[in-house]
C-alpha cells in the first residue's frame, strides 16, 4: 500500500467529500470504498451558524486521514493563506495544493503551483500538489520539497479518464520512486484500474462517486477496480503486440 510522507495508507482509493446527496450516503460510500483518505475544504461561515462543526464531526467519524485542499485558489498567496487556515482547522500539515490557472479547464497554474509548494514546504506543510502530467513541472515540484505528486487524469469533474496516456506513462517511468496519485478526471472504475495498472500508487476522485445514481455502489466498484489494477500491475502484464498469436497449440491439431 502507498506511503505518503512516511504514513502508511490502507487503500489506493482516496475520496472527496463533496456533492453527495446526503451525509448518510457520504458515510456509506466511504464505508464501502475502504478509502483511507478524505479530501475536505474550508469555506466561509456566517456568525451563529454551525455548519462546519457538523461536517467536522461527520468527517472525524469516518476514521480516515484528512487531506484539506486549496480548491478555488488562483494565486500562490491565496493558496498559502488557505492552507494555513486549513492546517489549524483540520489539525494536519497535509495539504492538497490547488492553484488554478484557467477558469474553464481548471488547469493548474504551474508557476503559482511551484511557488506555493516551496512556500508551504518552508512552513512545514506536507504538500500534495494537484498538477498535470508535465515531467519538468513534476521535477520542479520535487525540487520545491514535494514528496508526493498528484497528476490529473483529465480536468476536474469531466469523467474523461486518462486523456494523455503517453504523458502519464513517461512521468511514471521517469520518476519511478515518487508516490503518485491520479487526481481528477476519472469517471469509471475501469479508468481507475487503468491508472493503477500503469503503476500509479493511488487514485483520488469525488464526482464519479458522489454524482452517480448509487454513490455507495460506485464507491465499492472503484475499490474493486483499484484492487484489480494493482493485482495486474504486480503480476507483470504481457506486452501488447500488433500481430495475432494463437493461444491454442497448433501442434497436434487434426488434419481434416
Amino acid at each position: 500500500m502507498p506511503v505518503f510522507y512516511g504514513t502508511d495508507v490502507p487503500s489506493r482509493l482516496m475520496l472527496g467529500t463533496a456533492q453527495y446527496p446526503s451525509p448518510a450516503i457520504l458515510a456509506e460510500a466511504f464505508r464501502r470504498s475502504g478509502a483511507g483518505i478524505a479530501t475536505v475544504s474550508v469555506r466561509r461561515e456566517a456568525g451563529g451558524e454551525s455548519t462546519g462543526a457538523g461536517f467536522w464531526t461527520l468527517v472525524r467519524d469516518l476514521g480516515v486521514h484528512v487531506l484539506p485542499n486549496t480548491a478555488g485558489c488562483h494565486s500562490a498567496r491565496e493558496a498559502v493563506t488557505t492552507a494555513e487556515m486549513a492546517r489549524e482547522l483540520f489539525e494536519t500539515d497535509w495539504i492538497k495544493l490547488e492553484v488554478i490557472g484557467h477558469a474553464d479547464t481548471l488547469q493548474p497554474d504551474p508557476f503559482g503551483l511551484v511557488e506555493a509548494a516551496a512556500a508551504l514546504t518552508k512552513k512545514g506543510f506536507k504538500v500534495f500538489p494537484y498538477t498535470t502530467e508535465d515531467l519538468v513541472l513534476a521535477e520542479r515540484l520535487l525540487d520545491a520539497g514535494c514528496e508526493v505528486l498528484m497528476p490529473w487524469g483529465a480536468p476536474i469533474g469531466t469523467g474523461l479518464g486518462l486523456t494523455n496516456i503517453y504523458g502519464l506513462r513517461t512521468l511514471r517511468a521517469q520518476l519511478p520512486d515518487v508516490p503518485m496519485v491520479i487526481d481528477a478526471g476519472l469517471g469509471l472504475p475501469s479508468q481507475a484500474a487503468q491508472a493503477i495498472e500503469m503503476g500509479f500508487d493511488a487514485v483520488l476522485l469525488n464526482t464519479a462517486v458522489a454524482r452517480s445514481g448509487d454513490p455507495a455502489g460506485m464507491a465499492e466498484g472503484f475499490a474493486r477496480a483499484v484492487e484489480a489494477g494493482r493485482l495486474a500491475f504486480d503480476a507483470d502484464p504481457m506486452e501488447p503486440r500488433d500481430m495475432a498469436a494463437p493461444s491454442t497449440p497448433i501442434l497436434g491439431k487434426a488434419i481434416l
Binding site: 472527496g16 475536505v40 461561515e45 489549524e88 482547522l89 469525488n206 464526482t207
Partner: peptide, 27 residues
C-alpha cells in the same frame, strides 16, 4: 492568516477585511 492564539493580540483597523472559514466538503 491569523492563528487562533494570536487573535487576542490582533488589533483590527477600520476597513480591514476579515475572512472567517470553517471545515467544509471538498474534492
Amino acid at each position: 492568516f491569523v492563528a487562533a492564539p494570536a487573535r487576542s493580540g490582533m488589533t483590527l483597523e477600520p476597513g480591514d477585511r476579515l475572512e472567517v472559514v470553517t471545515p467544509r466538503q471538498g474534492g
